[in-house]
C-alpha cells in the first residue's frame, strides 16, 4: 500500500519536473514546480517526517513559489519562441546528464547501509516535531544561530539591492 502511494507521488513528481524544464511559458513552469514540491512534501510524510512536510509546504510552496510567480509577473516574459527556448549546448548537455545519472544510479543501487543505526527508530520518531525541536535548540544551536544570520544577511542584501536601484534613478 505504502509502495503504491510512493510510486504515484514519484511519478507525478518526475513528470511535473520534466514539465518545469520543457514548457515554454514561465508561469506554467512555476505551477508545475508547485505540483512537484507538493509531491516532495508527500514523500517526506512517507519518510515519517511530517514536520519536514509542513515546512516544505509553508516555505517552498507558500513563500518561494509566490516569489517566483511575482518575479515572472514583474518581468512580463510571456511565451518564448521555440528558438529562444533551448540553449545551443542542449544536445551535449543531455548526453552528459544521461551519463552522470547512469553512474550515480549504478552506485545508488549497488550500495548498502553499513553504518551503525542511531537511536531514533520508528517509535522515537512518533513525536517527530518535538524530537526535532529539542535537538534544534540543544545539539544544533550553533548552526541554528548561523543560519539565522544568513537569513538576516539575505534580507539586508535584497533591501540594499532594491534601494540602490531607486537611488540610481529610473534604471
Amino acid at each position: 500500500m505504502e509502495q503504491l502511494f510512493f510510486y504515484i507521488f514519484a511519478a507525478i513528481a518526475v513528470i511535473s519536473a520534466i514539465c518545469v524544464i520543457s514548457l515554454r511559458n514561465a508561469v506554467h513552469s512555476a505551477v508545475f514546480l508547485i505540483v512537484c514540491l507538493l509531491q516532495v512534501a508527500a514523500v517526506y510524510i512517507l519518510l515519517r517526517a511530517p514536520f519536514l512536510a509542513a515546512v516544505q509546504v509553508f516555505i517552498y510552496v507558500g513563500a518561494v513559489m509566490v516569489f517566483f510567480l511575482f518575479a515572472v509577473m514583474v518581468l512580463d516574459l510571456g511565451t518564448e519562441k521555440l528558438k529562444q527556448h533551448i540553449h545551443s549546448q542542449g544536445g551535449p548537455a543531455v548526453v552528459i546528464v544521461a551519463a552522470m545519472s547512469a553512474v550515480l544510479g549504478y552506485y545508488a543501487l549497488k550500495g548498502s547501509i553499513t553504518a551503525p543505526l542511531g537511536e531514533y527508530n520508528e517509535a522515537a520518531l512518533a513525536r517527530n516535531t518535538e524530537v526535532i525541536g529539542r535537538s534544534l535548540f540543544t545539539q544544533y544551536i550553533f548552526p541554528f544561530e548561523v543560519v539565522s544570520v544568513v537569513l538576516l544577511a539575505a534580507l539586508i542584501g535584497a533591501v540594499v539591492l532594491v534601494s540602490r536601484m531607486k537611488a540610481g534613478g529610473g534604471r
Binding site: A10, A13, V14, A17, I18, V20, I21, A26, S29, A30, L33, C36, L37, V40, Y60, V64, F68, A71, V72, L75, L77, E80, Q84, H85, I86, H87, Q89, G90, A93, V94, I96, V97, A98, M100, S101, L104, G105, A108
Partner: peptide, 26 residues
Amino acid sequence: LALFSVGVAGVLIRRNIIIVLMSLEL
C-alpha cells in the same frame, strides 16, 4: 536521482534565467 538529473538538465539546457533558478530548486 531522477529529480536531480532533471534539474541539472534544466540548468544546462534552458536559456531563461528564471527557469534556471527553478531547476536549482529541483
